[in-house]
Design a protein around this nucleic acid. Sequence first.
DNA 1: TATTGTTATACTCTATAACTATA
DNA 2: TATAGTTATAGAGTATAACAATA
Lengths: 155, 155
Amino acid sequence: MDVTVLDRLLQIGELFERDMATHFAGSPLTPQRVQVLWELARGGSCAQHELAARLGVSPRHVTTLVDVLEAGGYVRRSPHPTDRRSIFVALTATAEDTMHEMQLDHEELSATLLEAVAPEDRAAVERGVTAIAERLAELVAADEARRREEARADS
Amino acid sequence: MDVTVLDRLLQIGELFERDMATHFAGSPLTPQRVQVLWELARGGSCAQHELAARLGVSPRHVTTLVDVLEAGGYVRRSPHPTDRRSIFVALTATAEDTMHEMQLDHEELSATLLEAVAPEDRAAVERGVTAIAERLAELVAADEARRREEARADS
DNA sequence: TATTGTTATACTCTATAACTATA
DNA sequence: TATAGTTATAGAGTATAACAATA
């Protein structure tokens, strides 16, 4: 029962999720809501339908997420300047500060984890995980395309 | 806006989750239910409360999970030989075969991903991700301990 | 006619609290 | 009295379908 590289990689993802949950326990922020804020911080303000596309969730679900975040004072809804159907979502000043701090924490954590790697292995690890992420992205995209094909054939 | 090692690692976790969801779309199996079967396959049959501990979820939730998996023919409930309060959960023969196949697929995927890494980097990547996983586990455990401490101080 | 957001509904994941049967 | 599982309830993540307003 060997432990593979993939096992390790998945373990890292799970541990990070657990830490996020611990970190925001007691606040209205959950890992998924933080992801919304994170996306707005990194990719900038946008209309709800675009946010849905960027997050890969349904427009309906974005309504729910933004409702909660707006009530908590993390985001602001405003009318879209040219399209009256659309609603613009932006971080509040407070949330922008929070996200900036989180960005710094994130970079620090990344550095700390890299320090756990032997110095002579670090460059190889950086190259390696990038290559793995890219290959996996290809494989997943291929799987999804195949499944869409099958679904189309069924109907 | 650099992409850190941590970003890559998290991306890998997300991609894997997405692939799992794609893979089991249309079946009653969801990623989390598969995890239950996976745990039973790797760690062996056990009573529900032990399964809850192994999965890190509430005993109540195990009831729900096992209900669905039992209805789908993946697991079997049987009385505990010595403790009449307990219920033993075991994979059915079909599920055992499915899990065995999944184990092979998993190993193959791990090998495929490692092939995406330059040959001279592979050993370093294996060492590196192990070191990162271990360091992160320590950090998460410390965070959780600190939070428990705080919660205790509050009450 | 197509798109944007929302109301309505439902399934899944997850937890805590109260209860029953057993130890 | 403590433990194993279940009933009751609830919040969070997520989806589809139907609908209103707007393009």
